[in-house]
Amino acid sequence: MAVAFWILAVVSVAAGIVVFVVDSMARATFALLASLLAVGAAFLLIDLEYLGVLIILMMVMEMLIMAVFMIMYMMNPAGLMPMKMVHNNRGAVIISGAVFVLLTAGIFLTSWPQRRGEPPADPTRELGMAIMGSKMLVMMVIGVAILATMISTVVLATHRGRYDRYGEDLKRRRPLDPGPGQGPGLPAAEHHHGHGSCGSPDPREESG
């Protein structure tokens, strides 16, 4: 048991490190999947069969979907070129190392309380009774959160279409982002076509 745990722990952390080492984002996704699967398997060692299997099944699907998105946003297909896209690498290493040392010190210096009670014969049944009984509010809040996420992801991700019309005659386009880095720069005539919100006057603008 202990040997199995340490193997899974090493696999999990090593796969977590591999995520930020490999060149391809698709490979990074599968490294993350390996890390999550090792954690799911470690849960099987501590009587949490349901949660362990749940983690394994859910993360397999989640990472497969994530891989599709990763390939969409991958600027380095198939990892053909070395990809090192980091900023403030040294600071990040120092901060995360310090956090790890701090957490480890806390883990070994805290006098943890004694274990209260024994694990029930069927923890899954216990969990089911809890979420249908005393912990039902938690599950209801999660349900609302999932619904809110579904709606807001669709709203965020859909193409801006017929609802992005402004002005009295609904002919104005969305105001352009005033910040830097707004994608391909538009020529001034194109820029002012249909909107007058950026402050500079446009002779072609008919009414304010």
């Binding site: 930020f20 984002m25 501590i46 995360s96 957490l103 883990i107």
Partner: peptide
């Protein structure tokens, strides 16, 4: 297999993740 060993695993994963969240330029990474 003790509480400390599990928490150590958790802390290691947290620290690795923190490194990634702080250092990666790509938002998906």
């Amino acid at each position: 297999m003790t509480l400390q060993s599990f928490l150590l695993l958790g802390a290691a994963l947290f620290a690795v993740g923190l490194y990634g969240a702080l250092s990666q330029q790509s938002i998906v990474m």
